[in-house]
Design a protein around this nucleic acid. Structure first.
Length: 478
RNA sequence: UCCUGAGUAGCUCAGCCGGUUAGAGCAUCUGACUGUUAAUCAGAGGGUCGCUGGUUCGAGCCCAGCCUCAGGAGCCA
């Protein structure tokens, strides 16, 4: 009894003329003779050669696209071109039939929109097979990066009572019978009767809890799901996404930037090595897509080149103020090409401005620092100028903000003053303020959007295509 | 949420100025072929034109509302 071998291993096998057992799903069945078999272990298919003259015709009929089969036979050097090895089948078992009339995935090019509606089956396509293998590699690489550096993987809560950060709309978590919500005498919802005895929601960030860990364990990171109830309908937003949030004691903003840049380069390099085939396929896919576009709309670099370029170059670091100066002097601003002209110092940059800086001016990832305090969160460390905070955003071509972070305000008086100014309750965040009361120290951290990272590495243009089952307004299918 | 565009066969799309029986490629089915590479060749079947209402002798096409999708914007990761 031979053990099952995965297709990836067979295609890399040095040996031939050995007995093998393979299992997988039929991609196509050509010429009544050749099965292209895929089991998800690699982007490449294994060719199985059927002795059709000595096989029951009824069984041949069942070798349809999508059917699950088991094949025992001999791995031999291929007689045909296009593959090194193939399996000469001795016996084929149909494990699961697949009705060709009703199976949605056909051996042809499907639109990403169609496959999104069939997200339960899209793993079976070359594109999504590649995307989700890359996703897996990136997740692993992130853990490896932090583990190599002695970071502690910390699980911050999914259900939380704090939304003090103001990082957007939250999903409420409740046990109430929604048809009979308990009210207080003055008609307000009585959360005291709810499961936790107070209003709770799904986390929008693990940062505040992460800081608590860092101020004892030194270096921690979180890697988990995050939820935002924003009514966002874009290629860069989903309601449920995964975020990596490291938090480091005794780091200043420069250390923070160094770490973020090192992390991004590490995981991109890791994926390029580990998933070379998949990224090569995705590169080709994008090239084919670009052939539809006019010459000038095509990108200068292909996907692999873009990733390597990113590894070779230092990210451009500049302050918000410097960025504003560049934008003010820029051709599109002078020619009034920006929908939002650069008025002056103090307002947040629009997408078009970020795109200009990253895609036109510097043509590489850009780290912007020291933003005006009024457009940033309360916990960011205030600079001596009284106007700016030690924030940093890492902007990527085609993606926008990939990382957002800052050095944290460790001085209790400064922090409390800022909370008062911004109307944030010091009573609710008593535990956060305690870290500043007892052994406070400089520290910093950032949040990395995992899906946005995957978008960059795979070249996929829509965030809904890099998470298995995307959640977005009006959609929670599967 | 706002702006723009789209919704026609299983999929991708064409459908003229409102006019007779709504088309193509791929997929599927039937047959042929048998070292193919999204195989090829011949033939066949397949439609609530997103939904509701309106204008008209007549609506896939015009109008209104709604739904869904895509791209862009805002919010952000």
């Amino acid at each position: 009894m031979t053990r099952r071998t995965k297709i990836k291993a067979l295609l890399e096998s040095e040996q031939t003329d050995i007995e093998v057992l393979v299992k997988g799903w039929v991609r196509t069945f050509r010429n009544n003779q050749f099965i292209a078999l895929n089991d998800g272990s690699t982007n490449h298919n294994l060719q199985v050669v059927v002795d059709f003259e000595n096989t029951n015709p009824a069984k041949l009929k069942r070798l349809t696209t999508g059917a699950a089969i088991s094949v025992s036979g001999t791995l031999v050097a291929s007689l045909g071109k296009g593959q090194k090895v193939e399996v000469k089948a001795k016996e084929i078992d149909i494990l699961g039939d697949c009705d060709a009339e009703t199976y949605p995935i056909q051996p042809k090019k499907h639109s990403l929109e169609f496959l999104r509606e069939n997200a339960h089956l899209r793993f079976r396509t070359n594109t999504f097979g590649a995307v989700f293998r890359v996703r897996n590699t990136l997740a692993y690489a992130i853990h490896q990066f932090f583990q190599e550096r002695g970071f502690v993987y910390l699980h911050t809560p999914i259900i939380t009572a704090s939304d003090a950060e103001g990082a957007g709309e939250t999903f409420h978590v409740t046990n109430f019978d929604l048809n009979r919500i308990p009210k207080t005498d003055d008609g307000e919802i009585n959360y005291e009767e709810d499961f936790f005895g107070r209003a709770t929601n799904l986390t929008v960030s693990g940062q505040l809890e992460g800081e608590l860990g860092a101020l004892a364990l030194s270096d921690i990171y979180t890697f988990g799901p995050t939820f935002r109830a924003e009514n966002s309908n874009t290629t860069r937003h989903v309601a449920e996404f995964w975020m990596i949030e490291p938090e480091m004691a005794f780091y200043d903003l420069n250390d923070n930037m160094d770490l973020a840049e090192a992390l991004l380069k590490y995981v991109i390099k890791y994926a390029l090595e580990k998933n070379a085939d998949d990224i090569e396929f995705l590169t080709q896919r994008l090239l084919d897509e670009e052939k539809q576009k006019p010459q000038q709309a095509r990108s200068e670099m292909n996907l692999v080149e873009k990733l390597n370029f990113c590894l070779d170059k230092d990210f451009e670091r500049l302050t918000y103020t410097e960025a504003i100066d560049i934008l003010k002097e820029s051709t599109p601003n002078k020619k009034k090409k920006f929908q939002y002209p650069i008025e002056g110092w103090g307002t947040d940059l629009q997408s078009e401005h970020e795109r200009y800086l990253v895609e036109k001016h510097f043509k590489k990832p850009v780290i912007l620092t020291d933003y005006p305090k009024q457009i940033k969160a309360f916990y960011m460390r205030q600079n001596d100028d009284g106007k700016t905070v030690r924030a940093m955003d890492i902007l990527f071509p085609g993606i926008g903000e990939m990382v957002g972070g800052s050095q944290r305000e460790e001085r209790l008086d400064k922090l409390e003053q800022r909370m008062d100014e911004m109307g944030i309750s010091k009573e609710e965040l008593w535990w956060y303020l305690d870290t500043r009361r007892f052994g406070t120290c400089p520290h910093a951290g950032f949040g990395l959007g995992f899906e946005r990272l995957i978008m960059f590495v795979t070249g996929m243009g829509n965030i809904r295509d890099v998470i298995p089952f995307p959640r977005y307004p009006k959609n929670a299918e599967f």
